[in-house]
Amino acid sequence: MHTSHPGNVGAAARAMKVMGFADLVLVQPRFPDVLSQEETVAMAMGSADILARARIVGSLAEALEGITYACATAMTPRDFGPPTFAPRERLPALAQEGQRVAFVFGSERYGLANDDVYRCHACLSIPTHPTYGSLNLAQAVQLLAYDWRQALGGFDVQPRTADPERATLPEVMGALEHWRAALEAIGFLDPAAPKRLMPRLQQLLNRAQLTREELHILRGIARAVGRGSPR
């Protein structure tokens, strides 16, 4: 409602896209060309498609056409109006109701007018520190978009690295034999009285669950130790 900063529009579009939402409606923004302004596009960062589909309308009633459940977002307590919930208190149940849901945000300077809040079925208040609860508009959009996506089921985390290839037991045994020779070469291990050094190293490597690359590093160290020994 009455957005005044183009950067917030772009950042809000980005916040929506990363959570899988695309229906952005602006009600009487300060700048009629806000969707195409340079700052808006720059802050959108790859979500230009959201801006391209966004609509600018003249009233909240137009913006809520087809919506069956509207959530106002407000920090300031009111003595009259819809019930107020924390997002995670209300959204999981709302996601199960099959409603067409809209989240209504106010202007950066004044928030939502009382009449706009009265149009809504519920008011969502993001829990913040009691002495300072002022959120940037785009930040508020991101937080609610995240909570709504989680209520709808969320997305799986995509792995960024391949699963490590664990060293096999024979490979670990081979590395231990390599280390035995290196330790004998530098005089750390007495082959006549080895005691329990090698079994303890065996247990250490077993607990470590080394990858093949890590085992190769240890064998490289043993090789360098052997080359540098006076024997």
Rank of each mutant, 00 (worst) to 15 (best):
L60E: 03
G20I: 08
N136M: 05
E65A: 14
P164D: 03
S36G: 15
N8D: 05
A54P: 01
Q139W: 07
A224W: 11
H129K: 15
C123R: 13
P77R: 12
P6Q: 01
Q28W: 02
Y118P: 01
T76I: 14
S36N: 10
R180Q: 15
A175N: 02
V18P: 02
M198P: 03
L189H: 02
E62T: 09
T131V: 14
P82N: 11
D49N: 05
R219K: 14
N8V: 07
P6N: 09
L176E: 05
R196Y: 12
I186K: 10
S59V: 08
A63Q: 06
M43T: 07
T76H: 14
E97G: 10
L152T: 02
P159G: 11
A113M: 13
D33C: 08
F105V: 08
V25Q: 02
S134P: 00
F105P: 04
T161N: 07
P32N: 12
E213C: 01
L124R: 00
F31T: 00
Q203T: 14
S134I: 09
A224H: 13
L112P: 01
I221R: 07
A11Y: 01
R90N: 01
A15I: 05
L201A: 01
L24D: 06
D115M: 09
F105E: 01
A140W: 02
S47L: 04
G111D: 07
R200I: 04
A63Y: 03
V9T: 07
C71W: 02
G154M: 06
A181F: 02
R207H: 14
M1H: 11
I56G: 03
